[in-house]
């Protein structure tokens, strides 16, 4: 039995290492030698891992994912959130995320969800916008409200 996971892992990093070394070859002087060596070492380590897995007799593969559906929900929600933070505004997107993920994962206590979303978003607002005064992506409804003048 070969360990497919390790072969894939090894090959991925062998390729990354090779690319890194190849890119480093265009850098001048000592600034290029160091990353080139690192790239080559990475490629060799990757190749070692792949080769070792190919001749191994034992298979130590563990399942990559335990609950595929939930993982995909979380990944899609996370990616959507990252994509929407800027267009919708930070707090709007965050409130949506707080409401959507629990529902998507099968949490059926709407009032609890809404209250905790409100409390949590308020807390983040207090820490980041009031205490730390950090500029965050502007809320879409503020921009629309001012007629696009700002």
């Amino acid at each position: 039995m070969v360990n497919g996971q390790d072969i894939t892992l090894g090959l991925i990093f062998a390729i990354i290492g090779g690319c890194a070394a190849w890119m480093a070859s265009s850098y001048n002087g000592a600034g290029g030698t160091y990353p080139m060596i690192l790239g080559i070492v990475l490629a060799l380590l990757g190749a070692t891992i792949a080769a070792r897995a190919a001749i191994a007799t034992q298979n130590e593969e563990r399942p990559l994912v335990t609950a595929k559906a939930n993982l995909i929900i979380a990944l899609i929600a996370g990616a959507a959130y990252v994509a929407l933070v800027v267009p919708l505004g930070f707090y709007t997107a965050s409130a949506l995320l707080m409401l959507c993920i629990p529902i998507a994962l099968g949490f059926r206590r709407p009032i609890f969800t809404v209250v905790s979303a409100a409390v949590f978003v308020m807390m983040v607002w207090l820490i980041f916008s009031v205490i730390l005064e950090k500029p965050l992506p502007r809320e879409i409804w503020l921009t629309l409200g001012s007629g696009g003048g700002a």
């Binding site: 409200g145 001012s146 003048g149 700002a150």
Partner: peptide
């Protein structure tokens, strides 16, 4: 306030942070 009244853009700069 200015957001609500939709004032012209530059008249009362600065109107936010």
């Amino acid at each position: 306030l200015t957001a609500v009244t939709a004032a012209p853009a530059f008249a009362d700069y600065p109107e936010r942070a």
